[in-house]
């Protein structure tokens, strides 16, 4: 796998803490995501991984700390600001429009890129039509890229889980994001589907140059895919480095296997 060309930081999380009442989900966590890399966030159940992603894309607002994305620092951000800013994500449990076709779901990912207003789009005439054709072209490229031509017109509710995940990835890609957040992209998949998904993640990173941050439980996948790994446990960062460094880190081994008493 290619290493990213630059060490330019795309997103910097500094001293973030997040609490839900008495539960401290994140405690003073700092991490950075460099432009062009695949960054994995791992940790045992309840370590705060999804909270971290939610903080990054503005769904949760941290109690303390700051987030710097593309050079702009802010403590609070709304999800729509995050997506306008170029952050797209997929969810742990697939969040698609179940009754719509795969094509329409991915088209929905282009919403923020549409310049014409609702009325023009309803007319489907002139500039709005031209714009739709252009968007459709981009979406077709993604369909081709993810090899889902055969399910273009199928309502996603009828698709097997692995393909739904792929459609969701397609919708995130349709936003042409700078940073793509993937929450357990391979959860519940069989080996074959995992392999396919891994290949697509590497290809997205390679082909579109998209920076990717992902949460994943399958260690083999994480070690193969990512350039750098950050490990959380009980809301605290316990390790950060290349897959090899993390694998041999004593604190990580203890967090995963438990400590002998």
């Amino acid at each position: 796998m290619r290493m990213p060309d630059t060490s330019e930081v795309l997103l910097q999380v500094e001293g973030v803490s997040l609490a839900f009442g008495g539960v401290k989900a994140l405690r003073d966590v700092s991490l950075d995501i460099r432009k062009g890399e695949i960054r994995a966030i791992i940790g045992p159940n309840g370590a705060g991984k999804t909270s971290m992603l939610n903080v990054i894309n503005g769904f949760y607002h941290p109690n303390r700390g700051a987030i710097t994305f593309k050079g702009r620092t802010r403590a609070q951000m709304q999800p729509f600001e995050a997506s306008r800013g170029g952050i797209a994500r997929t969810f742990q449990n697939v969040a698609l429009f179940k009754g719509m076709s795969a094509l329409d779901n991915i088209m929905a990912g282009r919403t923020l890129k549409m310049r014409r207003g609702l009325l023009w789009q309803m007319l489907r005439y002139g500039p709005a039509l031209a714009e739709e054709i252009e968007h459709r072209h981009r979406v077709e490229e993604i369909i081709d890229f993810l090899e889902i031509e055969a399910i273009r017109k199928v309502p996603v509710a009828r698709l097997p889980y692995g393909l739904q995940k792929r459609v969701e990835l397609g919708r995130a890609l349709a936003m042409e994001p700078d940073l793509l957040l993937l929450d357990e992209p391979m959860a519940g998949m069989n080996l074959e589907e995992k392999k396919d998904m891994s290949r697509f993640i590497i290809d997205v990173n390679d082909h579109y140059g998209t920076t990717i941050a992902l949460i994943e439980h399958d260690m083999a996948v994480v070690m193969d895919l990512s350039h750098r790994v950050v490990v959380l446990d009980h809301g605290v960062k316990i390790a950060d480095g290349t897959p090899d460094e993390v694998k041999n880190n004593q604190a990580v081994i203890e967090a995963y296997l438990g400590v002998a008493h």
């Binding site: 072209h137 077709e140 369909i143 031509e149």
Partner: peptide, 13 residues
């Protein structure tokens, strides 16, 4: 000359 010889569906068209 102008009759179709090959077709291939690419990017949905």
């Amino acid at each position: 000359g102008n009759r179709p010889a090959f077709r291939h569906k690419d990017l949905g068209i």
